[in-house]
Amino acid sequence: MKLLVTLMGVAFITLATQSQSIYSLNYTMGFGVGETSDFIGSPSFRGVTFEGRGFLDDQFSLGGYFSWSTFYEKLAGEKFTDGTATLTGTQYRYINAFPMLFQAHYYFGTDEYEPRAYLGAGAGAYKMIQRVDLGVWSIEENHWHFGLSPEVGIFYPVGMDSQLNVNLKYHYVFGVENSLNYSWFGLSVGFAWGD
């Protein structure tokens, strides 16, 4: 997994030095689905994403993606039963997700001064830290995962070299050992800049 992260880092730096490149910094919300929403039902409003894209031509780019989203839910006074045992207490559940992806995008349109919708796909490493605090105890699952991430979005020009960026990204993270198969939709809004 370290090799994968290193390769993505090298790819990211290489692409960032391409003649045409765009960087974006976004506020990211997360909406868990599947096992993720079973574990934490509340959406995440704590997230940030940084992207770099190097253009191969007017309609294709390759790049790197890094994000941090925190999912959190407090389950106050919940009762859990297992066989004859019952436990009541307040649980604090957290998921910190750190996707580090290599990604490719296709743009509908070639004029960077007009709104451009795009489709994208990413693959790479996900650092997932899942924790439950209960009483004075804490149970943590901390693993590297492999995951995939299709995406749809739009760049909307707001200046000579600045664009509003809005995108919706689906993350699917394959489970390892005893962890969940994490999946969520990430809705990002932010600014992109570059030449």
């Binding site: 910094l25 506020y27 409003f45 704590r46 997230g47 940030v48 941090w68 925190t70 959190y72 004859t84 045992a85 019952t86 436990l87 009541t88 207490g89 307040t90 604090y92 957290y94 605090d133 209960l134 009483g135 004075v136 932010g190």
Partner: peptide
């Protein structure tokens, strides 16, 4: 964005009673 993210990082236990647990089991 960075400051906003850190400022709203979720808190955990706030009072001692938040740590209270009740466990029961039977034959």
């Amino acid at each position: 964005i960075a400051l906003g993210l850190f400022a709203c990082y979720p808190e955990g236990v706030e009072t001692t009673s938040d740590t209270d647990l009740v466990y029961t089991n039977y034959d």
